[in-house]
């Protein structure tokens, strides 16, 4: 039965020693060790979450970039389209203007020609009148004495008045 009979000395020393060791280790070993372990785990945790955050940020940036790029592409297309339209408009306007100008010039020319023609005709008419009068005068001057002569004379005059 000695085996299961506690001895006072051992209980005393064990209790005293264990409590002292517990105190010493708790204060000078476990506290700094646990603190260091917790700190390290916290720092690893922080580093991991920071990396995760950076990754998300990178993804957001990339998405932003792509959005910007797409917008830029759209803008470029729009500008190109507008420029083409503007060019076409300018050409069209110029063509219309030229056409108008041309037709206007043609009309003017026609008018001028008409006017010239009219003036020329008037002149011809006037000249014919003058000549007729002249002829008539000369015929009248010769006094219509000789019908032959008269006729010859008339013939003469008519020959003279070849419309040059």
């Amino acid at each position: 039965m000695d085996l299961v009979t506690p001895s006072i000395g051992l209980i005393f020393w064990q209790a005293v020693t264990f409590l002292i060791v517990l105190f010493l280790l708790a204060k000078f070993a476990w506290k700094p060790i646990m603190k260091a372990l917790n700190d390290r785990e916290a720092s690893i945790e922080n580093a991991l979450s920071a990396a995760e955050k950076a990754k998300l940020e990178m993804q957001a940036l990339k998405a932003d970039n792509e959005k910007l790029l797409a917008e830029a592409r759209l803008e470029r297309d729009r500008i190109l389209k507008e420029a083409t339209e503007a060019g076409n408009n300018i050409v069209e306007t110029a063509r219309q203007k030229a056409e108008e100008e041309g037709s206007r010039m043609i009309t003017n020319a026609r008018e001028v020609i008409e006017n010239e023609k009219r003036a020329a005709i008037t002149e011809v008419k006037n000249m014919a009148a003058v000549l007729s009068l002249d002829i008539a005068e000369r015929i009248l001057k010769r006094e219509l004495s000789d019908p032959k002569t008269q006729e010859a004379l008339a013939q003469d005059y008519v020959r003279e008045v070849t419309l040059s």
Binding site: V21, F28, A29, W30, I33, A36, L37
Partner: peptide, 11 residues
């Protein structure tokens, strides 16, 4: 005591 004080010092 020796072992864990050494370890604590390392930490």
């Amino acid at each position: 005591l020796v072992i864990f004080f050494v370890i604590a010092a390392r930490y």
